[in-house]
Nucleic acid binder design. Structure first.
Length: 414
RNA sequence: GGAGGAGUGGCCGAGUGGUUGAAGGCGCUGCUCUCGAAAAGCAGUGUCCCGAGCAAUCGGGACCGCGAGUUCAAAUCUCGCCUCCUCCGCCA
């Protein structure tokens, strides 16, 4: 969430930003709730002050009937104020939490059509067989039995393709560990507090992309970003310990409801896939720098594997609520003759960290909210699509990218 | 899953209804002493909210796992929940 004080001081800007991000929220409603909430809080505090005075007067002496009577009436008034406060506060919190993060100054406005290409790498290959047809021919993937076992958009990877996935993972993991990231495995379910704190819709609301566990305050994670965001909840971290660089590996579970249509074929959009994710906690003034670093690492991976891509600066209307700025790497698809999303990295500034109360103690002693960032190292199902499309051979074999061979017993062809 | 015990500040730990935001210790910071260090001594050392102030800061409120309740008054009593520890059961 945003800082209410910031919203009070920059109401117009926040209203405009909210609109730019595609949200229909009236900030004035929040401002009015805020004023009302503070007014009630002030009155409650005054009642408590009086209560404390009375209580202090009765500490030594014998009980005083008049003071006890006043205390009783104060109690009634206070209960009433507290009920009023609770009601307003619930409404206020809900609204405050729904306001999206402020976009960075260099984020293009508009929807996904306004994403700006900022870099390009590699030659755009032409002509290739659809990854699913190619893989099915080799008996490398089985969606039919996936559906039998779990339903549509579940799958089994088989044989060499499953081994290739593992090779990409191992290569990426080695790379990220060399970069100084601490590798972690993470809980695959999180509480609703962490889920919504990370900026994901909690529980089973219709819009939610997450699977909730019946009868428990738990949801399956859609990315390791979610548990990693919660990792330091309610902690104050020493300035000297920042940045904290983590890499989490996990399956990602997504309902993907309502996303049928383009690019849903095969492994590109599925209910479950494995992903290695970077996560960083940074000093506020360093997060822009860290963001560039995360992007750089993602580029190194795809350059090393040898996949043509471009980097886009995602437009405001296409950003998630927690992101201030997001870069996507889109690989070149010789099947669709266009760029398709492969990885993504976001600077969430202090949006997630304020939700989960993650702070830094500066050398000066000052305590402030720190910044969080996340980025894909490799999203495995999609990585397989990219490799299948770009490294397929005319004879139906698959050339193994050189950097992956050490993880496949040196094999050059699959 | 069952039985028992416990959850207090950065850490250890006192505290069973009112002068406790919280003793004492450790740690940390500053100062004194010293050529310097150690030791010793002195002082300081939580977070959040509201309000005032340019600011240092000041006034009020909240917080002793979380949430309810009893009471004029709750860290302290009652209930529910969560977590941890021990024992039993089960088990990769």
């Amino acid at each position: 969430m945003l800082d209410i004080r910031y919203i009070r001081d920059n109401t117009k800007l926040v209203q405009e930003n909210t609109k730019n991000k595609g949200y229909d929220i009236d900030i004035d409603v929040l401002i009015k709730l805020d004023a009302k909430r503070r007014d009630i809080q002030k009155k409650s505090d005054e009642l408590r002050e009086r209560r404390n005075i009375i209580s202090a007067q009765m500490k030594n002496g014998k009980p005083n009937p008049e003071l006890i009577a006043e205390g009783k009436s104060l109690k009634t008034e206070l209960v009433e104020k507290e009920n009023q406060f609770k009601k307003i506060d619930d409404e206020y919190s809900l609204l405050l939490e729904s306001i999206p993060n402020i976009i960075a100054s260099d984020v293009p406005l508009g929807d996904e059509n306004n994403n700006v290409e900022i870099k390009k790498f590699g030659d755009q290959k032409q002509g290739a067989i659809d990854h699913l047809d190619f893989a099915i021919r080799r008996d490398w993937v089985d969606f039919e039995r996936g559906a039998k076992v779990a339903g549509a958009k579940f799958y089994f990877l088989k044989g060499d393709l499953a081994l290739l996935e593992n090779a990409i993972y191992q290569f990426a993991l080695n790379h990220i560990v060399k970069k100084g990231f601490t590798f972690m495995t993470v809980p695959h379910m999180v509480s609703s507090r962490v889920m919504s704190g990370a900026g994901f819709a909690p529980r089973t609301s219709d819009q939610s992309d997450e699977y909730a566990i019946e009868g428990e305050d738990l949801s399956l994670i859609a990315t390791a970003e979610i548990p990693l965001t919660g990792y330091h909840a309610d902690e104050i971290i020493d300035e000297d310990d920042l940045p904290l660089l983590y890499a989490g590996y996990s399956p990602c579970y997504r309902k993907e409801a309502g996303t049928y249509g383009k690019f849903t074929r095969g492994l590109f959009r599925v209910h479950q896939f494995n992903k290695l994710e970077m996560y960083a906690f940074s000093l506020p003034e360093k997060s822009i720098e860290v963001h560039e670093k995360l992007l750089g690492i993602e580029e190194e991976i795809w350059q090393a594997i040898g996949i043509s891509y471009h980097v886009v600066n995602i437009a405001a209307g296409d950003l998630g609520a927690p992101a201030a700025k997001k870069y996507d790497i889109e690989y070149w698809s010789p099947v669709d003759n266009m760029y398709r999303e492969l990885t993504s990295c976001s600077n969430c500034t202090d949006y997630q960290t304020r939700n989960l109360n993650i702070r830094v103690r500066r050398k000066s002693g000052e305590v402030q909210i720190l910044h969080s960032l996340n980025g894909t190292v490799v999203s495995l199902a999609r990585s397989l699509v990219a490799v299948l499309e770009n490294f397929q051979q005319k004879d139906g074999t698959l050339l193994v990218p050189e950097v992956l061979r050490p993880y496949l017993n040196g094999r050059e062809l699959l």
